[in-house]
Design a protein around this nucleic acid. Structure first.
Length: 422
RNA sequence: AGAGAGAUGGCAGAGCGGUCGAAUGCGGCGGUCUUGAAAACCGUUGACCCUUCGCGGGGUCCGGGGGUUCGAAUCCCUCUCUCUCUACCA
């Protein structure tokens, strides 16, 4: 959520930013916010005056009573009765303005960083880095959804029976590969200085609002209605919400947390050619890294996180590229996002396996996540990234490393799997 | 799920309906002492909103909401949550 003070002081930059994100009606929304805010402040001022007067009168009455001056006390009571009506009216009005204000603010996306390219869709994104050779496979090469059947390591049909489409059952070496990847990713994160955490995977609505999934993406999350909880679409939600309503000391920063969780996405309205096999699932595994940083350091931290993900993909020997998302393709809460895509050689497709973002103060403002500076408290910056999401990594490993004799695993994984080929 | 207890500042824990934003202890910060540290001692230490160039001033907040009252952390109603015991269970 943007801060009103910031909007007030940077009106045109905010409007430009919203337009870059292709947010409809940017001017109207900002004008409405500023008008409501002005009324809010005016009302607050007036109300404070009335309350100050009421407080004073109450004290006076107390003193008069003590002094035994009943008559004068009674006549003052009549005055306070009037003041009370007035303050009731004003505070109702104030509440209304505050509600109006946050109703608009909560729907406003974050504004993009200056380096974010203009554009509307995936096609307008910028490639900023590329690494690795595209494997040349034989004409007999199979896409991963054939390979998993051939080697009997992932079973979609049985998943359909148990849950539905998009809930695969991993078996044998397939299951062990999952476990190996999770351990590998967590170990790498811990080596990089992240504190490993294991958060809840069902979260309350307040947590959803904190990180910005609500109200924007209500329909994308699975809901446990009976208890008013959501299944997390990413560990970002519970991990970042650890720090909701928190004031950190400057010496605790940066906070670096990493956690593995299953992730659940309804993917409502998604269909088409790119949903086959492991390309898009309702349930998948992911290791997430989260950092909380001082505002002046957050872009340095973003680079560090990008570096971490880069190193992971190099160790997995996968060809990949890094994409800077354009304004129209970025998420609601993000100020700058880098997507990592690995090349899946049999599908001949780039698959997104990580998304690393700086949310600046957008989430922290909703979360009331601050730090104590020398003079007063300030809003922090939050960042997160996948490191990494498993299914597409698995797809690329399977496809890229297939041979006549089986699938060769990257060396870095062998200590984790206990086998070097499938 | 049944019964009971409770929700106060970073934590622990007081608080006759009226100078209570709130005692006290711990922790934190600053200082004295010390070669340094510890101990001891002294001081300091909540958040948010409005207003002011600044000093400062005003307001709100003792789980949430509502009520009684001139005045509520303190009384009443209600919701939520937590804890304990029992039941159940990995």
């Amino acid at each position: 959520m943007l801060q009103v003070l910031y909007i007030r002081e940077n009106k045109s930059a905010v409007i430009d930013g919203l337009k870059k994100k292709h947010f409809k009606g940017a001017e109207e929304h900002i004008e409405q916010i500023l008008a409501t805010d002005a009324k809010r402040r005016e009302t607050q001022k007036e109300l404070d005056g009335v309350l100050a007067e009421t407080n004073q009168k109450a004290k006076d009455i107390g003193n008069l009573m003590k002094a035994g001056n009943k008559n004068e006390a009674e006549s003052l009571k009549a005055v306070t009765a009037e003041l009370k009506i007035k303050s009731k009216t004003l505070s109702d009005l104030l509440t209304k303005y505050e509600e109006d204000l946050s109703a608009v603010l909560i729907k406003l996306p974050n504004i993009p960083h200056v380096s974010v390219p203009e554009g509307r869709t995936h096609d307008d994104n910028q490639e900023v880095f590329k690494h690795g050779e595209i494997p040349q496979l034989s004409s007999a090469a199979l896409p991963h959804w054939e390979l998993i059947k051939k080697y009997d390591i992932i079973d979609f049909e049985t998943g359909v029976k148990i849950s539905g489409a998009g809930f695969p059952v991993y078996k044998g070496k397939g299951a062990r590969l999952q476990r190996a990847l999770i351990n590998f990713f967590l170990d790498e994160a811990v080596k990089a200085g992240y504190l490993e955490v294991q958060p809840p995977i069902l979260v309350n609505p307040a947590s959803g609002y904190g990180t910005g999934q609500l109200p924007d993406k209500d329909g994308q999350m699975y809901r446990a209605d009976a208890d008013d909880l959501y299944l997390i679409p990413t560990a970002e939600v519970p991990i970042t919400n650890i720090y909701r309503d928190t004031i950190l000391n400057e010496n605790q920063l940066p906070v670096k947390n990493a956690g593995y969780t299953p992730c659940f996405r309804r993917e409502a309205g998604s269909w088409g050619a790119d949903v086959r096999g492991l390309n898009r699932l309702h349930q998948f595994d992911k290791v997430e890294i989260v950092q909380i940083a001082l505002p002046e350091n957050s872009y340095k931290v973003l680079d560090e996180m990008v570096g971490h993900v880069k190193a992971l993909l190099k160790k997995l020997e996968l060809p990949f590229r890094i994409i800077r998302l354009c304004g129209g393709d970025m998420s609601f809460a993000s100020a700058l996002t880098y997507d990592f895509e690995v090349y899946s050689a049999a599908q001949k497709k780039w698959l997104e396996v990580s998304s690393v973002s700086n949310f600046e103060s957008f989430q922290a403002n909703r979360l009331k996540l601050r730090y104590k500076g020398k003079d007063k408290t300030h809003i922090l910056h939050t960042l997160n990234g996948s490191a990494l999401a498993l299914p597409r990594v698995v797809a690329a490993i399977l496809e890229n490393n297939q041979t006549d004799k089986g699938i060769t695993l990257p060396k870095a994984l062998v200590p984790y799997t206990g086998f070097d080929s499938i």
